[in-house]
Every structure is written in C-alpha cells, then in structure tokens.
Computed example of a mutant assay.
Amino acid sequence: MKFPLSQLALPLLALAFAACRPDQVEHLKDSKRIGIEAENWEVKRIMPKDLLRATRWAGDSLTANADSLLRRTLARELAAGGVARAMRFCRPETYHAVDSLAGVLKATARRVSEHPRNPASLAPLLAAEMRPDTVRTIRRLSQEVFFYQRPIVLNNQLCLRCHGEIGKDISQADYALLQQKFPRDQATGYRLGQPMGAWMVSLQRPGVAEFWTMKTRKKWKEHKMPKLF
C-alpha cells in the first residue's frame, strides 16, 4: 500500500522534534569566555604603528606612577623633617616600585633638565617638545629600541619648597642646605605651571610589544546569573 508523501513526513518530523527537545540539548558552558581566551592565545602581528602607540602608553604609565609616588613621598617627608629630609627623596626614577615597573617594560627612565640640580641630569631640550604639557615625543631609535619623552611641569605647590624663588618660596636656611648638597644647583626660581625638565625613557622592543599585547587583550568578565526564584 502506498501512502501519500505528506503522511510519511509527519511522523518523521515528530521524531526529529522529539529527539531535539531543549531539555536534551547539551550547551557548551562559558562559550564566550572560551572564545575570548582562544583569541588571546592567537598569535597577532604587531605593526610598527602599534609599537609606537604602545611606547606612548608604556611611557605614560611609568612616568605617571613615578610622579604620583613622588608627590606622596615628598608630602610625607616634608611634613616629617622639612627640606633637609625631603631632598633625599627627589629621585622617583630610583624608587623600588618605579624600578620594578621599568623592569617589566624593559625600560630605562631618567629625568633631565637644561637647568638641573645635579649636573649629571643636564640635557638639551627643544622648546617645541616642552609645551604644552600634553606633548609627547615618540621615536624608534633602532629595530630594538624606542624613545619616549614628555615635559615635567611644576604643578605642585610643595615643589616650590625646593624649586621656587629663594627668599620667597625657599628659605635662606633651606637654600644653604641645598647648596651644600648640590653646589652647582641651577633648579630654582621656578613658578607654578613652568616646565622644569623632561622625562626621557628608553624602551626595548620586547617590553613594548608585551605592553601592547596586555593593553589590547580582551578581558573576560564573569557575570552572575540573574536570580530566577
């Protein structure tokens, strides 16, 4: 006996739907997280422009951390022992936390000026690279070395205690202490808002590339399931 095609199709469709009931389908858990992690492990080609962008990110991160630590340290030391105590801590590039971050970035950081307190920090600076304070100088010096520079602007009232006008911001007694330690000091006479010098950072390519990868890597954020009952 022959049955019409429509009569044969109905039982087959019923079986198919029964075999695929939602309560019998096993879904892949955390599929989004797995996809993001797989993408993170995928080897990506980093272009030259990406490395230059990462040089700025890394330089900003390193110097901003150093400046923040310097402000907190100077506030603490000035309160504890005045200029005599605080002037020993005015080298944030030597702080342990800053040095550790520089190690991660494979970077060497120093602060320079055309009117330094220490002659070892003397360096010529282009006026166009010192204003405004948001200017950044980024270069690739070689295949393996990148260069970062940004101006250091006196924007903290506390800094005037050592770098302001003698007799007004700096007492004669404190200036005598500064001259005793830095007999060739030129770093006085500044006012708020003036550029004092610059951060210069040399970074190795592996550190820059790793920082670019860290900054651009997607992060998986676990979201709690909504409460149903």
Rank of each mutant, 00 (worst) to 15 (best):
W212T: 07
A80L: 04
L158I: 01
A75I: 05
V135N: 07
T108R: 10
R91D: 13
R33M: 09
S31H: 15
A198G: 15
V104I: 02
K49V: 08
D23W: 07
E144F: 15
I34H: 11
V145H: 08
P11L: 01
T108N: 12
R71G: 08
N155W: 03
P226D: 14
G207R: 03
T137R: 01
V153M: 01
K49I: 09
L177H: 00
A120E: 07
I166Q: 09
T55A: 00
Y95E: 02
I138G: 02
H96F: 14
G197M: 05
L101M: 04
K2A: 11
G82H: 00
R85G: 09
R88W: 15
L160A: 00
P183Y: 00
H223N: 10
N156V: 08
E129P: 02
D133I: 00
R76L: 11
K32T: 10
A58W: 02
T213K: 13
K49P: 02
C20T: 15
P4G: 10
K168P: 00
D60R: 03
D23C: 04
G189P: 05
L13I: 12
S6E: 14
P92H: 05
R91M: 15
W199S: 02
Q7N: 12
Y175K: 05
G35F: 05
T108C: 05
Q194F: 06
M1Q: 14
R161G: 12
T108L: 14
F229R: 07
L70W: 09
P132T: 12
M87Y: 09
H223I: 07
R110N: 04
N156L: 09
G167V: 01
A109L: 14
A120D: 12
L105S: 13
L101N: 14
Q24F: 11
S31I: 13
M1A: 10
K29C: 06
Q180L: 11
C162N: 04
L126G: 11
M1W: 07
S6G: 15
A54M: 03
V112Y: 01
L141F: 01
C90R: 00
A107C: 06
L228A: 12
V145E: 09
P48R: 02
K32L: 10
I34L: 12
P151C: 04
K2T: 06
D30F: 06
R205K: 02
A102P: 15
T137P: 00
E42C: 10
P132G: 05
R21H: 15
V43M: 10
A187D: 00
Y190V: 11
K218V: 11
V98R: 02
A127W: 14
P48K: 03
K215I: 09
V98L: 02
P195C: 11
K44T: 01
A97S: 05
A173T: 11
G35N: 03
V25E: 12
E144K: 14
R91P: 15
E222I: 06
S31V: 14
